[in-house]
Design a binder for these strands. Sequence first.
DNA 1: CGGTTATATAACGATATTGTTATATAACCG
DNA 2: CGGTTATATAACAATATCGTTATATAACCG
Lengths: 107, 107
Amino acid sequence: MASLDAAFSALADPTRRAILARLALGEATVMELVEPFDMTQPAISRHLKVLEGAGLIVRRIEGTKRPCRLAPSAVAEIDQWLGMLRRALETNYDRLDDVLAAMKPEQ
Amino acid sequence: MASLDAAFSALADPTRRAILARLALGEATVMELVEPFDMTQPAISRHLKVLEGAGLIVRRIEGTKRPCRLAPSAVAEIDQWLGMLRRALETNYDRLDDVLAAMKPEQ
DNA sequence: CGGTTATATAACGATATTGTTATATAACCG
DNA sequence: CGGTTATATAACAATATCGTTATATAACCG
């Protein structure tokens, strides 16, 4: 479960979520990712390192550039974990329905 | 999107995820949540405050107890945001399929 | 080769997070 | 009322996070 720590904590930062949203449109180099943000290149480089460490992106080497793109594994793991919560919420919701249904006749 | 910060960052902590997993089984009081952990009651109380602030749990008052249960809103918001990544990953995967399909003949 | 471009890393300060202990609050019970 | 139980809060230390500037590395281009 250690990688869930990394994945969720990577997603907790709005800059990193914005980077992922940008990458959802397609591959981008580090400088392309720096451009829309009011932040220095080293700052973005470290955000990218965090995202890579969390398994949310991968990078290839292309000359002096490092194009980044989304990686699927971390999202799958998160989805799986959230599934547990989703199922529990549905169950509790069903129970609530039962309670409400049981109450109606008595109104 | 500020609440996504709170939700993801709440989920980044393994103790808090364990608390949620416990609550997936049903409501629990603070002391019931303290028991399985090797941690003091104030520590758990603050984790609960974080989870509540993130909209992941709600608490009612029952005498001197505060039973906690899962809340649906934050999970829904997370799901919605992850949907964006999921769709992008599918699209990129399709593109990869195209690339591979285009490569095969040349092998 | 020498200058420029793309990216990474180190060092540092400011702030946030997480745990602890000590203590406050407030309901419950005899 | 007085003691116990359930929970919250304050104060504090240790550590992590996030930004910055300065600098390193290494590919590219003329």
